[in-house]
Design a protein around this nucleic acid. Structure first.
Lengths: 127, 127, 127, 127
DNA sequence: GTGGTCTAGACCACA
DNA sequence: GTGGTCTAGACCACC
């Protein structure tokens, strides 16, 4: 009855999101091996079945490939990775724009706010 | 042991956040009355004590004022509302910048992405 | 079981204290009439018996005198009033000194703290 | 209707005051551990939730710090302790001055009353 | 063990 | 009615 506030997305998707984020941040590199289902299950404190679903979902999206007897690997297909990156980016941008609109800001103001808060430090390499 | 994936803020703060968002979006107007503790508790499917705590927290922050025996009201102090708005905006912008940096984008690219995705439609009024 | 924190002194003594304070502040003047037991009981939201005890106590201390059929009056005996004033004053001073000692202050520092916080405004007349 | 004479602050604040006094008197030393919530609850004859609230309030004020799974400790930040001491002192002095004014005393008389009642014994060390 | 959150149900003061 | 305090008893995460 009190669980409207912890429910959110199913765990297997939360984990999928986390892995996608790691790929996008290049913490997981193309062609790199993911932890085994069992190992990941232990790491995440979750039932192996849950991780199995996560990996299936990622395979369905094309971002990982399973090689029988060897394990699960981040895809090396550039187009998929680029597409993935673009999709995440689109989500981030649209989310940002919507939030800023709710705050009553114009496009101009959004841009100047970025100028204001962006510290120039290290620019990471582009895909 | 299986709960790294609920990890959520306490309910009373989640509700506080929700109310703040409503104030910032002007769904709740300055001087406007919030639902009573008991009513909000029913709406949120939560114990009245939890809402009490939410309202206390909001009062401590200065965004609401309670009048004994009458109810809880959004503050009319402009400076607090403006500051609140600025704080939320800062959070949104910094979150956006961090996300985009993780995607490997430069400031320039962030700005052009906004140009790209921003549909010109209605510009809402500024504070 | 939870009443260590509301107990304090009995009500009849609390009321006596209040009356004494009023006499000392000259809100009640020597020879002046106190409200009747019944009236005071209503004013204080208390049982008349309680006020009766209050007045008895004050009479025992000599600060009021009861005249049969007329009521209860603040004494006009100067020595008692002066003594009363001196006693209250002694209590206030000793309380202050003890508090300040607990804060680790020397006599010198106590005096300078008074110099510091005392605003010169209106000095009321002395007894 | 009979409760003008309990009129007391909430218990959780009374206990907070008591703890503050203990800190100021150095009965609780900086870095020292407070009794656990449950233990303090038993000592004070009060529900653990009430003590929890007390500790929260003290933490909000910055005079204690809680270490998860370890306990609640008096802060070691000197500035906060000094400020706390100053605040308490100010309250004591202002209370004293007001009481003495009600008794009709001038600043000069207040000072000489301290000279009179202050016994020279041990001067405790200053902060 | 520790503090932190939450529920259920009660009583209070204020208006 | 309103918000504010308190109790009783529970479960959680951290150490």
């Amino acid at each position: 009855m009190t669980d409207e506030y912890s429910a959110s997305k199913p765990i297997y998707l939360q984990i999928a999101d986390r892995i996608i984020r790691e790929i996008v941040r290049k913490e997981l590199t193309p062609g790199g091996k993911l932890p085994s289902v069992r190992e990941m299950a232990v790491q995440s404190g979750v039932n192996p079945n849950t991780i199995q679903r996560t990996y299936s979902e990622l395979e369905r999206m094309g971002v990982v490939e399973t090689k029988r007897g060897q394990g699960t690997f981040v895809t090396e297909k550039e187009d998929i990775l680029i597409e993935l990156n673009a999709k995440i980016q689109r989500e981030v941008v649209e989310d940002f724009i919507q939030n800023m609109k709710e705050l009553g800001l114009t496009k101009k103001e959004m841009i100047s706010s970025i100028e204001k808060y962006h510290s120039e430090r290290e620019e990471t390499k582009k895909w």
